[in-house]
Simulated scan of single mutants.
Amino acid sequence: MGDPSLDLQKAINLRLRTDIAAVDNRVFDRVPADVAFPYIELGEFQTLDDGAQCHDGMEVYATLHAWSRAIGQVEVKTIAGAMRGALREAELDLGPDWQFLEIAHQDTRYLKDPDGVTSHAVLTFKALVAAA
């Protein structure tokens, strides 16, 4: 049994590619150098044992990034809202090793990049999973 963050990453990637038309299937783990905007980047993941002795459960924190070069922050905020909506109460398939229990949005930060052109949203989600 591997780390549940990999299976969660795969499930989130599939859900965002399926549900967010604004990025036209541009959801990346490693962003290509010549990528078109807007796009979503699968960022950092952290896995924590939930501490319960009665089951093999884990908390997985997922940080997701949305990037836009449209004027203002309307596009990046719209994409961030769509990301929250796509994952809210989602039933994600983690494969045979992990049982998905739930995912919840923790916070969103909106940033203006120093280049003066790029808008950036950083979203954090917390998922609960258990060994299957």
Rank of each mutant, 00 (worst) to 15 (best):
M1E: 13
D3H: 04
D3S: 15
D3V: 00
L6W: 12
D7E: 14
I12E: 03
I12Y: 06
N13I: 05
L14T: 10
L14F: 10
R15V: 00
L16W: 09
T18N: 12
A21G: 12
R26K: 02
R30C: 06
V31T: 12
P32Q: 13
P32V: 11
F37N: 11
E41H: 12
L42H: 02
Q46S: 15
T47H: 08
T47D: 08
L48I: 13
D50I: 06
A52P: 08
C54W: 07
H55I: 00
H55R: 15
D56L: 05
G57M: 03
G57N: 06
G57C: 07
M58D: 13
E59I: 06
V60M: 01
A62E: 12
T63Q: 13
L64W: 07
H65Q: 09
A66Q: 09
W67N: 07
R69L: 11
A70E: 11
I71F: 04
G72E: 12
G72R: 13
Q73N: 10
Q73C: 06
V74G: 05
E75Q: 15
E75H: 11
E75V: 08
T78D: 13
I79M: 09
I79H: 02
I79Q: 04
A82M: 08
M83D: 06
G85A: 12
G85S: 06
G85V: 02
G85K: 08
L87M: 00
L87I: 00
L92E: 04
L92Q: 03
L92R: 01
L94F: 08
L94E: 09
Q99H: 05
Q99S: 07
Q99K: 12
A104K: 08
A104Q: 07
H105F: 08
Q106F: 00
D107W: 01
T108Q: 01
R109I: 00
Y110H: 13
L111V: 11
L111C: 00
D113V: 08
P114I: 06
D115H: 04
G116A: 05
V117H: 00
H120M: 07
V122T: 15
V122G: 03
V122I: 15
F125A: 09
K126Q: 13
A127P: 06
A130K: 14
A130F: 03
A130C: 01
A131T: 13
A132P: 00
